[in-house]
């Protein structure tokens, strides 16, 4: 792939996947300024990683992989495990997370509790949560994270159960 082809492909990929990337950025950023920085960082890593793409996954899955890895803080010289900002999740995805809370109204206390609990999850579980928020299929989540599909399903079920339990018992 020459430079021109790479640039064209990059533009195409970013245009097609901009919303997905921005959503991931939003979950891991406290405000829109940090969101922009993270978005730039992800695009830089997409550009730098494009030459390494071997076609073993779809481009969209690969982009999620770069976005999640970058958002979790694996980019750059210093590594820090990023916090999730639950209040920045879209409402419909939010309702979808703890199964038992589907019909309830979310109070400020619920949001805070959920955010605290989400940030106590392991890095892998955090990634699973953010991807499930985006309605990414379990098979693709497995590919992004490097787990088996059944493992992802089990983990997601356990996370939901745990969050539901915490929310019903504490709120």
């Amino acid at each position: 792939m020459n430079k021109k082809e790479k640039e064209d492909l990059f533009k195409k990929l970013v245009t097609e996947n901009a919303d997905k990337i921005k959503n991931i950025c939003k979950y891991y950023s406290p405000d829109s300024a940090s969101e922009d920085d993270l978005y730039q960082e992800i695009l830089i890593n997409i550009w730098n990683g494009m030459d390494r793409f071997r076609g073993d996954a779809q481009w969209s899955t690969w982009i999620y992989r770069v976005a999640v890895n970058t958002s979790l803080g694996f980019a750059g010289k210093s590594l820090k495990v990023q916090k999730l900002y639950a209040k920045r999740f879209p409402e419909e995805a939010y309702q979808n997370l703890p199964e038992e809370k589907e019909d309830k109204q979310w109070s400020e206390n619920d949001f805070e509790l959920l955010e605290t609990e989400l940030n106590q999850l392991s890095i892998i579980d955090k990634a699973i949560v953010t991807l499930s928020m985006e309605n990414v299929k379990s098979k693709d989540i497995a590919d992004i994270i490097g787990l088996t599909e059944s493992n992802v399903r089990v983990k997601l079920h356990r996370i939901k159960q745990h969050l539901a339990h915490v929310l019903t018992s504490k709120s």
Binding site: F53, R65, V66, F74, I144, G146
Partner: peptide, 15 residues
């Protein structure tokens, strides 16, 4: 040369 395009588990192992 850090590769963020690998699956998360591999990136974590490297880190």
């Amino acid at each position: 040369n850090l590769d963020y395009t690998l699956p998360l588990i591999s990136v974590i192992k490297q880190a």
